Amino acid sequence: MCQSRPPLALYGTELRENNLSSTGSNRVQVFSFSGALRQMRIPPLIAVIVLGKLGLNAAFVPSACSNIHKASISSHMTQQLTYRSIAFETILMAEGNSQVGSMESVFKFIRSDALSLTVGSLCLLALVTNRLYTDPLFDSQSRTDILGVFSAGGLLLNGLTLQDITVREADVVQLQGPAVDDVKGFDALTPRQVTILRWAAQTYLKAFPTLPSVLIWHKGQTLLRNGIMADPARGTGDVRVLAIVQQALSSNPEADGLCQPTYIPDLQVLPGKIEFMNYLPSMCQAVVLQPFDSNQGLIILGGNKRRDLTPKDLARARVIAQKVQTCLAE
C-alpha cells in the first residue's frame, strides 16, 4: 500500500505560535515564504498548484479568516493554532525538517542570480540562433524578437543586481623615510601643550594603523612631526601652504571652530601630490587635512593605503583635532 506524503498548508496569514502542538512524534515547523512570494509576485493559489504538481498535499487558507482555534488540516496533522491577520503574509507549514529544507532550497534557487543569468543568456542565444536560421523573416517575428530581447535583458540585469560584488581592497604600501618624533616651538608651548600634542600624535598612529604620518601646523609654524616623514634631502620637512592646503583652509569653520576634513583617498593619481613631497613620504597613498582653530591650524595625516578611511574614521579624527584645538587655545 502506497504511503501518502505529509501535508502542506499555505496560509494567507501570519501564525503566532502561542499554543502549538501536534499529534504523534512528528514535530511541526513553521517556515515563512512571504518575502519570496511577494518579490516574485506569485499568488498563493498558484503556489498551491505548483506544490500539488510536486506531489505534495497542499491547501490554502485565505487571510480573511480572523481566528482558528482548532484546525484539522488533514488526517496527518491536528493542531491548536492562534494567529493575527496580516495582509499579504503567507506562512508555509511543513511537517519535518527535510521538506522545509527542500522547499527553502527551491525558492532560493528560483531567486538566485545564477538562474537569472543562465536563463537570460539561453534566451538571448535562442533568439540569435532563431534569427540566423529562419528564412524568410516576417514583421511579426521581428516584433517578437524585440520582446524576447527585452525579457532576456531584464533577466540578465536582475542577475547582475543580485550578484554580490566585492571591491578589491588596495594593498598597503611600505612608505620609505625616516621615523621622526619632533616637537618644535618649545619656547611658545607650555609643558601641558607639548604633552597633549604628543598624545594626539600617538592616538592617531594607534587608532589609524594606515596613517603612519602625523603633522600639526598652527599659525604658520609646524609644531609637531611624528611618524614616517619625507627624506631630509627633499626639504626642511615643514608644512608648506600651497594650493591644496590653501583650499582646505579656505572652507568655512563651524560653530566649534573646526572645518570639514579634506580627504584625498588616492594621492598618487593627483598631479598636485608634489605639494606634499616636502614633508610626506614620496609614496604616500592618501592624505587627510583637518583644519581647526578657525582655519589657523591644520592636522595633516599621511596614509599608506588608498581608499581605506570611512566617514566614521574621519569623524573620529575630528574628535582628536577638537582636543588639540582646545589645548592650543589655553
Rank of each mutant, 00 (worst) to 15 (best):
P261R: 01
S32N: 14
L37S: 01
F276K: 02
Q325M: 14
L249H: 04
D113W: 09
A36H: 11
M93L: 15
N130I: 03
D231H: 07
G154A: 11
I73D: 13
A200Y: 02
V48D: 01
Q246C: 01
L117T: 06
D135K: 08
G35W: 06
V61N: 08
S294T: 10
L298D: 03
T203H: 08
E89A: 12
R234V: 15
L160N: 02
S32E: 13
W199G: 01
Y83T: 10
V173I: 15
A315M: 07
P136W: 04
I244Q: 12
T262Y: 00
M77G: 10
T262K: 02
V172R: 14
M229L: 08
D181P: 00
L224R: 01
C259A: 13
G272T: 05
V287L: 10
A255I: 12
L205Q: 12
D256V: 06
F60T: 02
K323T: 12
R111W: 00
N130W: 09
I274W: 08
D266K: 03
V241R: 07
V180R: 11
I146C: 07
R306H: 04
I46H: 10
A59E: 15
E254F: 07
T161C: 07
M1S: 13
E14Q: 12
A9N: 04
T166I: 11
S282L: 14
V180T: 15
Y11S: 08
G120P: 00
T195E: 14
I165E: 10
C259L: 06
V241S: 01
I86A: 12
Q202E: 14
V183M: 00
A188R: 15
R131W: 11
N97P: 11
D135G: 00
F186W: 09
A200C: 07
R225G: 04
G55A: 08
C327Y: 04
L124N: 03
S116C: 11
K53L: 15
Y133L: 14
A200M: 03
S4F: 06
K305Q: 15
V167K: 06
D231Q: 10
R16K: 11
G177W: 00
S72P: 00
W217F: 15
G302F: 02
F31I: 10
Q193H: 07
I244T: 15
N295P: 00
L289Y: 02
